[in-house]
Amino acid sequence: MTRAAFSYEFPHRHLISVADLNPVDISLIFERAEHWRAVNKTTRRSSDALQGMTVLNLFFEASTRTQGSFEMAAKRLGADVVNFAIAQSSAKKGESLSDTARNLAAMQPDILVVRHGATGAPSFLADRTDLSVVNAGDGMHQHPTQGLLDVFTMNRHWGSVGGRRVLIVGDILHSRVARSNIGLLSMLGADIRVCAPPTLLPADIDQWGVEVFTDLDEAISDCDAVMALRQQKERMAGGFVPSGREFFHLFGLSHERIARAKPDVLVMHPGPMNRGTEIHSQLADDPKHSVIMEQVENGVAVRMAILELIGTNLRKEDAA
């Protein structure tokens, strides 16, 4: 269906959680992402969609990839981009987040791209300023653009994720990527499995509409896609898991382990990878299965789509 067929406009001025989206919103994002993906393949990538607007990247947690991806997306759309990195090392910094928010808002940016260590910080900022807020990761809660680019990548291979079996393996407990993916995939009708040692599974995950496994061989059977999550090194040292190598032997992805999955299984990873902890180096680099670099490429296109759709709504508000 095209947009005109049901004359529905993307209604959001924020992207805080995948729970804010419905399947039509998602298809609108993907339709525009497909467009920008094609444009990004050419040498004429600049657009004036966000001309005159300022996108403020506000990162309270260090990030190279996500921040770079958002910056590239905003610049290709013609926006001015300002990066603010605010070290959040000490619990008690000089200024409260609401004061920081008010100060930044006074500088009149249009879209705030926020990453913060605490659940709820992006919606907190959206409540306290009149800026559009795009969540680039909040605590262990949500990382909606990552979830969208993952599903976009799967969609491009399959047409639709409905009815496909997708396995997420690794540290689900601390993962905002897993929470965003589970939200989107269940909304779109995928058959979701998760696999992790019990110490890395959230409480009550059995109520999330996913199948829970602790045995990777069992979990991986007949999967269409398998997504490894990044394992934090400090959690692999006896606290949650005895060692990185034990984790690799039990939960790491390798050619051997994916043999039980579908023959054309997609191997995914949100990055940055720890080769030899959650994924075998050779599998990560195997173009037959690994779509990890496609995910990175699609990330820019999906973020362009989101910034463009939100920017269009801001222009409408401005005109009204």
């Binding site: 659940t119 605590g139 905002r176 409480a203």
Partner: peptide, 15 residues
């Protein structure tokens, strides 16, 4: 408190 609500939000919670 550890619950469906807090674990969906990824909040550090006590049982």
């Amino acid at each position: 408190t550890e619950s469906d609500w807090s674990s969906r939000f990824g909040l550090p919670a006590e049982p």
